[in-house]
Design a protein around this nucleic acid. Structure first.
Lengths: 142, 142
DNA sequence: TTAAATCTATAAAGCTACTATAAGGTCAAT
DNA sequence: ATTGACCTTATAGTAGCTTTATAGATTTAA
């Protein structure tokens, strides 16, 4: 199978496949006489694995680690689970940070309406004066 | 005030200040005879504004827009509020996506414990078999 | 006075994970 | 012979900085 077919099969761009090869995530395939890459089933599985990891938010470096673990099939999978646990807590802290940010933004937005001049805009003055953190012990005027 | 003092005042690196100037977010300051940049309080306020926007997750392009709005103090602030509303919904969809991701990851993690060999690792087989997402139409034999 | 330390300057590369473009070679069909 | 689809490599662009390289200016210590 050539690169275009593999790309269509897995749903990526051909450049992405070459990029993964260059990054050492996909083994270099053999070549036809004209230099075209020739892929096997194994490559397809490897590429699909990478894509699913990416969908799960794993970095290429993390994927690389997972691949290296797979090279020793009889080792315990402690490290794999640890990697996933780390990733889960990473995702959770992102969520927490974004929720805090959402609160800040909503509170900032509540300090203005559309009937003002720029000069008096609650959002802009809020940012300028550093009122980007919700005041403690102060009741919101929403 | 020179660049180092401004940097310390606002809590950024000197390179970041030069970078913002290069990106058109900070007006070019005047120079001493030796070429050193000389900053005023206005620059300090402008830089602090940029940093607070960045903390709120606004992109440099969005900050640029906010700055251009500030150039017309008597226009209505509708666009500012709209920009913030857009940003809020952007943040909210990020949160939603991350929460869905967290669920996937936790369910994947639950399919394994640390007492297995890599070969039988629930996490790795879960990813390999595509138990993570409805996505790519792969089969057991490609 | 001179050497070291600190500050400043510019320019360019590095980071992530691709995406896009350029310039060209290969192949089947027309 | 030429179109068009496919392939090749190399290079640049994306965001928002950070790091590095190299060099000149200024200040401080010996």
């Amino acid at each position: 199978m050539r690169i275009g077919q593999l790309a269509q099969l897995v749903g990526v761009e051909t450049q992405t496949i070459r990029f993964y090869e260059q990054q050492g995530l996909l083994p270099p395939p053999s070549r036809q006489d004209n230099g075209y890459r020739v892929y096997t089933e194994k490559h397809g599985e490897g590429l699909a694995f990478i894509r699913r990891c990416r969908i799960l938010g794993l970095s290429l470096a993390e994927i690389h680690k997972l691949q290296s673990y797979q090279d020793d099939p009889h080792q315990p999978c402690t490290a794999v689970n640890a990697l996933l646990d780390d990733h889960i807590s990473h995702v959770r802290s992102q969520i927490t940070a974004l929720q805090a940010l959402e609160n800040q933004l909503v509170s900032l937005r509540a300090s203005c309406n559309d009937d003002r001049e720029i000069e008096a805009c609650g959002v802009l003055t809020g940012i300028s004066e550093g009122n980007t953190h919700p005041a403690v012990g102060e009741t919101s005027t929403i």
